[in-house]
Design a protein around this nucleic acid. Structure first.
Length: 963
RNA sequence: GGACAAUUAGCUCAGUUGGUUAGAGCGCCACAUUGACAUUGUGGAGGCCAGAGGUUCGAGCCCUCUAUUGUCCACCA
C-alpha cells in the first residue's frame, strides 16, 4: 500500500542545505534553548585564512558526533565555533599575496597601519569562507556565540592575562637568545622550527694551540673563548682563565680558556670556541661564566662590521670566501666534505633560522606563582597527573593515555616561553614606556644629529613634516616630539629604512635610565607614552580559548559594546566537557590552554581530551598543496554528500593514530547512506507508520521478531558504550552491520512474507531507533528520513534510545537462538546449492531431520522455504535413514537433504572436504580436553563450552560419515 | 642518542581486562537480475597475526630481544 513516493536513491544535494537551515532556525544549536546538564565543546578555531581541508572535516565530524550524541542524551550542549587570527601564518600569506601583486617589500612600502588594514580585509573575507564550509559539514554549533581570537572581547582577555602575569612576576623582559627567522623578520618559538638535514663541508681550524671544528666558519669572527671539559686529560696543562694570543680570521685575537662540563670529550678534538650570540649552547656557557658575546650576523642575515671586509655579505655567500682566507693564512687544517648536519628552518617561511640575542618578553614557567606555591610548570604537570588542586580536584583525561607521557616529557624540557613576535598581525603587547627627562635629552640628541643624517632629513621642519605623514597628533610639546620621533623611528625601522642594529648601537652609545613602564589593560593617560611594538605569540590568545569565549573576564563583553549575557556562560560551561585535537598541536595548544586556565581560573580547561591522528593519502604521505594531491572536502561533499564524507573520515580511525583517506572509502560510505535510505523507503512505503500505541503482543512475536529486537537492544547498548568511550569507528561499524546485514538482508526479507499485526509497530520502532543511533554520524539523511516518516519534532533533539522496547530488554538475547538456527540452515542450503551449481531457478525438495528441533523447524518451514532457498517442498522429521541421491548439509545435529539434481562427484568432493575440516577441529578440541591441566585449571565454563562444542562436532561428523 | 607508535587476508583496518575454527569493508572469483536498493543480491576463495625466545592449561593479545616502517623530542660545537 505505497502511499508515498520517495526517490530510489538518496540525493544529498536535494536535502542538505534545507535541513541545515531548518536546524539553525530551530534554535537548538543554542544551549539556551536546551535543558539538562551542561556539556561544552570548544571548536579548535581554524585559521582565518585557511580553507576547509580534510583535517577540518575530521575534526568537525568528531565534534559534531559528540555534540549531537550528548544533545540527544538530554544535555545542554554548547558547541562553540570560532576562528583564529593565526598571526604569523596570516601575515606571511598576505605579504606573499602583495608581493605577487608587485609590492616588493610590503612592510617597508605600506607601513604598519596600511599593512594591517590589508591583512584585516583579507582575514575578514576568508573568515566567512571557512565558516560557511563548517556549516556545510553539518556542524551543529551555536553561531550566536561565534568567537574570534583577535576580536575586541578576546583582546580584552589577552590583556587581562598579560597584566595579571606581569604583576605576578611571571612575565619579564629580557635579553635572551631566541630563534630569529630572517625571512619573516620575527622571532619564533622553539616549536615553530623544523630541522632539515643537509650535507655541508666541515672544517677543522687551527685556533692557537688547539684544533677546533665547525660547519659554520662565518660565525667565528668574534670567538675569543676556547672551551674544554675540566676532566679532559689532554688539556690538563691549560687552566681555566688562561689567556693567549693567536692569529685568527681578521688578525690577532686574545683568547681565554674556559672549562665547562657541557663539552663532549669524545666529540672531535674535545675543544670548541663559542659564539654566544648565535648558538643556544654557547649562550648558556657564556651565561654560566659571565662571558661577553658579540653579534656577528645582523637581522637580515648579513655579516656585521666585525667581519671586516666580509661585512654586509650574505652568510652563505661569504662562507667560501672566509674559508679561502683561513686557508691562505694556514689556519685550515682539513675539510670533511659531505658532513651531515641539521639546519633550523622556520616552519612557516622555510627560511634559515638564526639564533640571535634580542630583548624579548618571556613567560617564566619555573617561578613560583604568588599565593600558589607552584610554578606554571607545576600547574601544567598536575593537571594531567594528580589533578589540579584548585577549586576542585580536577584532572584532564587524555585519550589515548600514551600522550600523557609525551606531554609530561615535553614539560620537563620546557624553557621559558618567548611570547613576543616582531610581526604586526596580532595582539599588541599591553606595555607602554616613557623615557625619563634625562633620557629624553639623550634621546633628543640621538634623534637629531645621527638620526637626521641617517634618514636624510635636513631640518626640524622636515622632521616634523615627515612625522605628520605618520602621526596626526599634536606635536607642540617637545617631549611629544620625542615620542613622535620614537614612533617615527619605529615606522622607519618597520619599513627597513634604518636597521635595528643601528638603533641598538645608538642606544648603547647613549645609555639612558630605565624607562618608566605602564603595563595595563588600558593605555596610559598622558603624553610621551610609547606602546611596545611587538605582538604576542598567537598561542597566547589561543591558550585562553576555553574561557575567553565564555565571557571571561566578566566585563569584557560589556566593554566591547555588546550587551552582557544574562546567563553566566563561564560558570555554566567551564571547565568544558570534551576537546578534540590533533597530536601535532598537543604542545602548542593543549599545554597552553592548561597553563592559562589553571593559572587564571584555577580550573582545568577541559575534562576530556581526545587526540586524533592525521589523515594521509593512499601512499601514507601527508596531503600537501605542493604534491597536488590535496582533496577538497567540498568537492567530496558535492559528489557523495556530507554524510558520506563524515562517515568515511571516521571509518577505521583509532585514537592518536593516523589513517589513510581515499575516495573508495567515501564511495563505500555513500553506498551505506543509500542503503539506509532504501531500508527506510521500503518500510515507509509498505507499512502504515502512524502509530500511536506501541504496545506489542509479546506472545505473538515470531522468532525473527524476537531475534531482530534482541539485536537492536544489543546495538543500542553497544553504540552507546562505544560513544561514551570515544570509539567512533567501532560504533559506526556496528551500526553498519545491523543496518545492512541484520535488518536489510534478513529481517526485511522475512517481513516480505511473514505478516503479523505487530509488524508495522516493530518496523517503525526499529527504524526510529536506528535513525536516532545513526543521527550523530549521518545527520542529514537521518533527519530527511525522519521527516519523510511524518514526524513533527526534529530528530536532532529526539531522546537517545535506552532500549528497543521496554519489554524487549527481557527478550534480548534469549529466544534469538531460534532464528539463528534457521539462519544457519538457510545459509547451509544456499551454500550446498551453489557448490553443486544448481541453477537458482530450479526448485528442489528438502527433507530435514531435526531431532529435538523438530517442533521449531516444522513451525518455521515456510520461513525456510521463502528465504531464497529454492525449496518447493519441505518435510521436517525427527530423524531417519540417510537419503541417497541427495545433497547433504548439516547444522549441528540437524541434517538436511536436498533431493534431486545431485552431481554425485561434486557432492562427494564437497563432503570429503567437510569431513577433513571437521576432523581437524575435533582433534584440536579432543587434544585440549585430554590435557588434564586444562581441565583442572581453566574456568569451568570454558571447559564446559569445549565439551559441548566437541559433542556437536562429533554428531555432525557422525552423520556426515554415515552417508 | 631518548621516547612513542605501527607490523593481522591483495588493499584499508577492527580485534576492549588472555578462552569457539582470528573478523569487517574494499578488491578478487562464480552466479543472479522487472523485486526497497546495480550505490543491488547469493555463495566462495584468501591469514605460520613481522621474526626469535619466554610466561601460561591456553597468546594476535602479557614479558624480553630483533627487524622493518613512521612520528616526536633532544642534540652533533
Amino acid at each position: 500500500m505505497p502511499d508515498k513516493e520517495l526517490p530510489k536513491t538518496y540525493n544529498p544535494g536535494d536535502y542538505e542545505d534545507e535541513i541545515y537551515a531548518k536546524w539553525e532556525k530551530s534554535g537548538f544549536f543554542n544551549p539556551d534553548k536546551l535543558t539538562g546538564d551542561p556539556y561544552a565543546i570548544m571548536m579548535p578555531p581554524p585559521n582565518v585564512t585557511g580553507v576547509l581541508h580534510l583535517g577540518h572535516a575530521l575534526e568537525s565530524s568528531l565534534m559534531d558526533i559528540m555534540a549531537r550524541y550528548q544533545r540527544m542524551q538530554g544535555k545542554k550542549v554548547l558547541l562553540l565555533p570560532g576562528t583564529d587570527h593565526a598571526a604569523v601564518a596570516t601575515q606571511a600569506k598576505v605579504e606573499k599575496v602583495l608581493m605577487e601583486k608587485g609590492v616588493e617589500h610590503p612592510r617597508q612600502e605600506l607601513g604598519r597601519e596600511k599593512l594591517l588594514a590589508e591583512i584585516r580585509t583579507y582575514a575578514e573575507n576568508s573568515k566567512s569562507t571557512i565558516l560557511k564550509q563548517i556549516r556545510k559539514m553539518g556542524t551543529s554549533c551555536d553561531w550566536s556565540r561565534l568567537a574570534y581570537t583577535f576580536d575586541e572581547v578576546r583582546n580584552r582577555a589577552v590583556n587581562e592575562i598579560f597584566v595579571k602575569m606581569y604583576h605576578d612576576g611571571l612575565i619579564y623582559k629580557g635579553k635572551r637568545i631566541v630563534n630569529w627567522d630572517a625571512k619573516l623578520a620575527t622571532t619564533i618559538s622553539d616549536d615553530e622550527i623544523v630541522w632539515q638535514e643537509e650535507k655541508a663541508p666541515y672544517y677543522y681550524l687551527k685556533y692557537g694551540p688547539f684544533i677546533i671544528s665547525t660547519a659554520r666558519p662565518e660565525t667565528k669572527f668574534g670567538d675569543k673563548y676556547v672551551v674544554m671539559h675540566p676532566d679532559d686529560k689532554r688539556y690538563k696543562k691549560y687552566k681555566h682563565g688562561d689567556k693567549f694570543e693567536c692569529e685568527w680570521i681578521n688578525g690577532k685575537v686574545t683568547a681565554t680558556v674556559i672549562k665547562d662540563e657541557a663539552i663532549d670529550m669524545k666529540f672531535g678534538t674535545g675543544v670548541m670556541t663559542i659564539t654566544p650570540w648565535h648558538d643556544m649552547v654557547d649562550f648558556e656557557i657564556a651565561e654560566r661564566h659571565k662571558l661577553s658575546g658579540e653579534q656577528i650576523i645582523d637581522f637580515n642575515g648579513k655579516l656585521m662590521p666585525i667581519a671586516g671586509e666580509f661585512a654586509g655579505m650574505d652568510i652563505l655567500a661569504a662562507r667560501p670566501k672566509i674559508v679561502a682566507r683561513l686557508q691562505a693564512k694556514g689556519l685550515l687544517v682539513k675539510v670533511e666534505e659531505n658532513y651531515l648536519h641539521r639546519v633550523a628552518k622556520g616552519d612557516r617561511s622555510n627560511g634559515l633560522v638564526e639564533p640571535q640575542i634580542k630583548e624579548q618578553w618571556f613567560v617564566d614557567v619555573n617561578k613560583i606563582i604568588p599565593g600558589k606555591k607552584k610554578s606554571l610548570k607545576d600547574l601544567m604537570r598536575e593537571a594531567v597527573t594528580t589533578g589540579h588542586q584548585g577549586d576542585k580536584k580536577q584532572k584532564v583525561k587524555i585519550t589515548p593515555e600514551r600522550f600523557e607521557k609525551v606531554y609530561l616529557h615535553w614539560i620537563d624540557n620546557l624553557r621559558d616561553w618567548c611570547i613576543s613576535r616582531q610581526i604586526w598581525w596580532g595582539h599588541r603587547i599591553p606595555v607602554w614606556e616613557k623615557r625619563s627627562l634625562g633620557a629624553k635629552k639623550q634621546a633628543a640628541r640621538f634623534n637629531k644629529k645621527d638620526f637626521y643624517s641617517k634618514i636624510n632629513i635636513g631640518s626640524d621642519q622636515d622632521f616634523i613634516k615627515k612625522t605628520i605623514e605618520w602621526q596626526n597628533d599634536d606635536y607642540a610639546d617637545s617631549s611629544e616630539i620625542i615620542g613622535i620621533g620614537a614612533e617615527l623611528i619605529r615606522e622607519l625601522k618597520d619599513r627597513r629604512l634604518i636597521d635595528e642594529y643601528w638603533i641598538e648601537k645608538n642606544r648603547l652609545d647613549h645609555p639612558s635610565r630605565e624607562p618608566e613602564r605602564h603595563v595595563g589593560v588600558e593605555p596610559p593617560k598622558g603624553i610621551g607614552w610609547i606602546q611596545d611594538e611587538d605582538t604576542l605569540d598567537t598561542w597566547f590568545s589561543s591558550g585562553l580559548w576555553t574561557f575567553s569565549t565564555l565571557g571571561w573576564p566578566a566585563y569584557a563583553e560589556a566593554s566591547a559594546g555588546k550587551p552582557a549575557k544574562k546567563k553566566n556562560d563561564l560558570q555554566t560551561f567551564h571547565p568544558t566537557s570534551w576537546m578534540q585535537m590533533g597530536y601535532e598541536i598537543l604542545f602548542f595548544w593543549m599545554a597552553r590552554m592548561i597553563l592559562m586556565s589553571t593559572y587564571a581560573l584555577d580550573q582545568i580547561p577541559f575534562k576530556d581530551v581526545y587526540i586524533h591522528g592525521i589523515l594521509r593519502n593512499e601512499q601514507g604521505k601527508k596531503f600537501s598543496k605542493s604534491s597536488g594531491d590535496n582533496i577538497d572536502p567540498l568537492e567530496i561533499i558535492k559528489k557523495y554528500g556530507t554524510d558520506a564524507l563524515r562517515l568515511s573520515v571516521i571509518a577505521g580511525i583509532a585514537p592518536g593514530n593516523d589513517s589513510k583517506f581515499y575516495e573508495e572509502k567515501v564511495e563505500g560510505a555513500r553506498n551505506l547512506v543509500n542503503k539506509l535510505w532504501n531500508v527506510a523507503r521500503y518500510i515507509i512505503t509498505n507499512y502504515e507508520l502512524r502509530i500511536t500505541n506501541y504496545e506489542l503482543n509479546y506472545k505473538e512475536l515470531t522468532s525473527a521478531d524476537q531475534w531482530i529486537l534482541g539485536k537492536l537492544e544489543k546495538l543500542i547498548k553497544e553504540v552507546t558504550g562505544d560513544l561514551d568511550k570515544y570509539q567512533f569507528s567501532q560504533a559506526g561499524e556496528k551500526l553498519r552491520d545491523f543496518t545492512w546485514n541484520d535488518l536489510a538482508d534478513w529481517y526485511l526479507e522475512v517481513c516480505k512474507f511473514e505478516k503479523s499485526g505487530d509488524k508495522p509497530k516493530i518496523l517503525s520502532c526499529i527504524l526510529e531507533n536506528l535513525l536516532k543511533l545513526w543521527h550523530p554520524f549521518m545527520p542529514f539523511v537521518t533527519e530527511a528520513i525522519w521527516s519523510e516518516m511524518g514526524k513533527d519534532r526534529m530528530l536532532m533533539v529526539e531522546q537517545w534510545p535506552a532500549h528497543a522496547f521496554a519489554e524487549a530488554k527481557a527478550s534480548a538475547g534469549k529466544p534469538a537462538g531460534n532464528f539463528a538456527v534457521i539462519k544457519d540452515i538457510v545459509i547451509a542450503i544456499r551454500n550446498a546449492r551453489a557448490e553443486n551449481k544448481i541453477e537458482p531457478g530450479q526448485k528442489v525438495q528438502a527433507v530435514i531431520y531435526a531431532g529435538k528441533n523438530k517442533k521449531l523447524l516444522a513451525a518455521q518451514a515456510e520461513l525456510i522455504k521463502n528465504l531464497r532457498t529454492g525449496i518447493s517442498e519441505l518435510e521436517v522429521k525427527d530423524g531417519g535413514k540417510k537419503l541417497s541421491d541427495a545433497i547433504y548439509a548439516a547444522v549441528g545435529e540437524i541434517e538436511i537433504y536436498l533431493v534431486g539434481a545431485v552431481d554425485a562427484a561434486k557432492e562427494k568432493a564437497r563432503l570429503e572436504k567437510e569431513i577433513i575440516n571437521l576432523e581437524k577441529i575435533i582433534k584440536a578440541i579432543e587434544g585440549k580436553l585430554a590435557n588434564q591441566e586444562f581441565v583442572d585449571k581453566a574456568p569451568e565454563a570454558v571447559v564446559k563450552k569445549e565439551r559441548e562444542k566437541l559433542a556437536g562436532r562429533q554428531a555432525e561428523l557422525k552423520s556426515l560419515k554415515h552417508r
